[in-house]
Amino acid sequence: MSSLGYFFAINIAFVSGQCQSDQQTLLLQLKSSLTFDPSSSVKLMQWRQSTDCCDWSGVDCDEAGHVIGLDLSTESISGGIENAASLFSLHYLRSLNLARTSFNGTQIPSKLANISSLTYLNLSDAGFAGHIPLQISSMARLVALDFSFNQFSGSISSIRWEHLLNLVYAVLSDNSLNGSIPRSMFEFPMLQHLQLANNQFGG
């Protein structure tokens, strides 16, 4: 199990209730907005209107039936998520795992920051590229993030890392990030693990 997976395992206790109808609708809309290969899908192909969404593979709910965990890692998803408006409307979501998917060089949509309840975000080896959106600074509840093994480029100094006061685990390794490393990245009050290797930082 990866270090981030370990954080997922020990820090989130899911108590599943009966799925709220609006949550199920959002997930079905998300499924329809994603491009994926049905023949190799393990999770998304199990998402059906006829069953409770809290029982779907990759979905975790709280006792009130709100979706608080979404794990679509290793699904055969391609394209991007910029049109997945329903994902950004899952306002109770605490954990999002899109690791080892194939987003084919698309950018992280800035709307991802609309999910202000997120504490765990894993986009490792997901095929993202371009700049890390500045809006990540507003995700003040983040405890763990993993952006490793993507194609991110540009400087990270413009992101207000000092706003991420709850960050314990941060991995940005194996990208094409450049420029200087902001001092604020070494001043997180809760930080235990920071990994920046295999980029193009200077200064």
Rank of each mutant, 00 (worst) to 15 (best):
L177K: 02
T101S: 11
F147Q: 05
G105E: 13
L123Q: 12
S110F: 06
H131W: 00
N175Y: 15
F103W: 00
Q107H: 08
N83H: 07
N122K: 06
L98M: 15
L87V: 04
N166F: 05
N178G: 14
Y169C: 11
L167G: 00
V171T: 14
R183M: 08
S148K: 14
L177E: 05
L112N: 06
L145P: 05
S86H: 12
A126R: 12
Q107D: 09
L90K: 10
A140Y: 01
A84Q: 02
F149P: 03
L90S: 02
L134S: 14
F128V: 07
I81E: 03
E162N: 10
S95K: 07
K111A: 14
S117V: 00
N122Q: 04
L145K: 04
L93R: 00
L93K: 06
S153R: 09
I136Y: 12
L165S: 14
I115N: 09
N83S: 07
E162G: 00
S153F: 01
S148H: 13
M139F: 00
M185W: 09
M185L: 15
F88M: 02
L172Y: 11
I132Y: 09
M139V: 02
L98H: 10
S137C: 11
I181C: 01
S95F: 01
Y120T: 00
A113Q: 04
F88W: 08
P133M: 10
R100L: 11
H163S: 12
A99Y: 08
L112Q: 00
I132Q: 13
P182C: 14
N122S: 03
F128S: 07
